[in-house]
Design a protein around this nucleic acid. Structure first.
Lengths: 219, 219
DNA sequence: GGATTGATCGTGACGGTGTCAAGATGTGCG
DNA sequence: CGCACATCTTGACACCGTCACGATCAATCC
């Protein structure tokens, strides 16, 4: 599990940090990693960033605001990785598999971001920047499913399939530790996140591509 | 959204409630519904149950213990509903659709339980009773997928398909409010949770049943 | 260079929290 | 009736989020 860079030291006097918002986001990620979301606190973030307890409030409003900023960062990282993973792959089915792998890399390399991204109970869910960031990541997936429909099956219900993939991914990232624990309990070789994603992609897409004319009409 | 029964009044003196554990679970559900998980507190639960702030600690150890008890209750309710939904349906594909509907009913009728059931950050994830309760619900789904393999496609990778369905369900329950918000933004008729489940089940199962001999061999 | 304004902090206070210890009360059994 | 245990209440402590107020720094203008 890769840790983010430690918070930057202030570049000026004690009353002008220089880049406190970024340092606070980095500290927030550290606190999530070490204490979980339930143990998360603004004061601990402030301590790690080397400022007073009220400083985060000035930049982010409150604890929701800071966590929302971390979630936005996570979605932007995810979108960038999905775009990068799928770049240069002509076959859209292969591209879907590749962006599945991209999602896995983000989940492994940015676990704190992933932990917070879908937690509406601690986020400012009505924040337009959060909605836009989430949609940015989702749109990469949806565009890939649309390309599959164009190439293989014009009747593929693109919105439904994209939502199915997005829901599955989100659910899997959260349930993966439980599946690993279950495999261990049954003394089976644990299935990695990567492997789960590969198999799920095969199960969803290979079947859909072949059943032309049998899905519900595209809405 | 249906509220749980209000906490029972003590049946004895102030130092012997009579059935405090159940009253505390009911109050916990109320607090989750009214304040969300982030606003949840033991003292608020104690106030609503009409006892002192330290009483919950005696029965549940700490805040994790109480939320774990609520999650166990949720999984047991889910298992019972999945069993009831699939009872008497001979065709396992229809049975899978029916238990999908059962999951939806639990999500709608017990939103507080659903909100807490997969939150490993606030639960005692190593509690054997929690693992057993989760496995109980999951096993109903897995048995149904196994029956589909028996009837329609002996090469269906049962564990993978069951995990795919479970992950999808979990992800969808969490993402449904975002999908509804997205539909509203695009001025489309919002897709209900029920409708999403029906479509996802069709997409996953109908395709898989038809592609005999083309999935990975069962592990 | 000094004054002014706004940005960016620190300090202190308040009410709420979780958890622990000690003690008070109630129940059941011999 | 006494005892042991269960089941609470009370009080304390450290930590929390948030707010108000004030201190300091940077940039701009005259």
């Amino acid at each position: 599990m890769r840790s983010p860079e430690p918070p930057e030291a202030p570049t000026s006097g004690a009353y002008h940090h220089g880049d406190l918002p970024n340092a606070l986001r980095a500290s927030a990620v550290e606190v999530i990693l070490s204490k979980g979301l339930h143990g998360f606190s603004l004061r601990e973030v402030a301590r790690r960033a080397g400022v007073s307890h009220a400083a985060p409030g000035y930049h982010f409003g409150d604890v929701r605001g800071l966590l929302t900023a971390v979630a936005i960062e996570g979605f932007e990282t995810l979108r960038d990785e999905l775009v990068r993973s799928g770049a240069g792959i002509d076959d859209p089915i292969e591209r879907l598999k590749a962006i599945g792998g991209g999602y896995v890399r983000v989940a492994i390399e940015h676990p704190a971001h992933c932990e917070v991204m879908f937690r509406d109970d601690v986020l400012s869910a009505d924040d337009p920047a959060l909605a836009e960031a989430g949609l940015g990541a989702y749109s990469v997936l949806e565009a890939t499913v649309a390309a599959i429909a164009d190439r293989y099956n014009a009747e593929l219900p693109v919105h439904d399939v994209a939502r199915l993939c997005w829901s599955t991914m989100q659910g899997l990232v959260e349930l993966q530790p439980k599946f690993v624990a279950l495999d261990a309990m049954l003394t089976r070789t644990p299935t990695s996140l990567d492997e789960h994603v590969d198999r799920f992609t095969d199960l969803i897409i290979t079947g859909l591509v072949q059943q032309r004319g049998q899905t519900r009409p595209r809405r």
